[in-house]
Computed example of a mutant assay.
Amino acid sequence: MSYRAKPLLFVAILAGLSAPAFSAEFQRDIDAGHSFWGVGRTGVMCYMAPCPWQGIFPISADKNERGFPIARQNQPEPRFTSADPAVTRAVIAAYAKGDCLIVEGKRIGDGLDIARIIGQC
């Protein structure tokens, strides 16, 4: 292997290790109409922007398996709505602190309409 190819291989391996897991089983959950989402810290680690450090991503509530964030860059203030104002306030506060919550809801544009909070990621 040439000395020029080694850094490229290193970067490719590093990028692969830093990407969140996304399985076929998880995709079936999304396709079946399940609506569990992670909001907040995505678990994606990058050393260059743009990077989705914080955002909204599909998640399985039982295995805590994360999908790819809906935005490929950091989402500083996505739109959260809920029929219960206390839920909206709790999600916005947790997001602002950099926490990660699992919620049940429906995607609306770059935000979520949240039915309930499931718990911490």
Rank of each mutant, 00 (worst) to 15 (best):
G40W: 02
V91W: 05
R41W: 12
P85Y: 05
L17K: 05
S18E: 02
I92D: 13
D31K: 10
S23E: 05
Q54P: 01
Y3F: 15
N74V: 06
P76W: 09
R28K: 14
I102P: 01
S2G: 14
L14F: 09
I30F: 11
L112P: 06
R4T: 13
A90N: 00
P20N: 07
G16A: 08
R4P: 11
A71C: 05
Q73A: 14
P20R: 06
E77L: 10
L14T: 10
W53I: 11
C46G: 03
I56C: 07
K63V: 08
A15S: 12
A15H: 10
R28V: 11
T42F: 07
A15P: 04
F26E: 14
V103E: 07
S2L: 12
A71H: 07
L112K: 03
P69L: 01
N74H: 12
D110A: 13
P78Y: 00
W53H: 13
D113H: 11
T42S: 05
S35N: 15
A96G: 08
F10Y: 13
I59G: 02
F80G: 03
I30C: 07
I70R: 08
V91I: 10
V103G: 05
S18N: 09
D110V: 12
A49K: 11
G105W: 03
G43P: 04
A90G: 00
P58D: 09
K97M: 06
D62P: 04
A83I: 02
D84A: 05
F10E: 15
G55M: 02
Q54N: 00
L101G: 02
P50C: 08
W37E: 00
N74L: 09
A32M: 03
Q27V: 14
P78K: 00
A86S: 10
G119I: 01
I56K: 07
G111H: 07
V11A: 15
G43L: 02
L14A: 15
A5R: 13
K63D: 10
D31M: 07
P76Y: 07
R72P: 03
Q120D: 14
G55W: 02
S18I: 05
R79W: 06
Q120Y: 11
I30T: 07
G43F: 12
F26S: 14
P76G: 00
R72L: 15
M48A: 15
V87G: 00
D31T: 08
S60Q: 13
D84R: 10
E104F: 10
G111A: 09
F57H: 01
S82Q: 02
L9F: 13
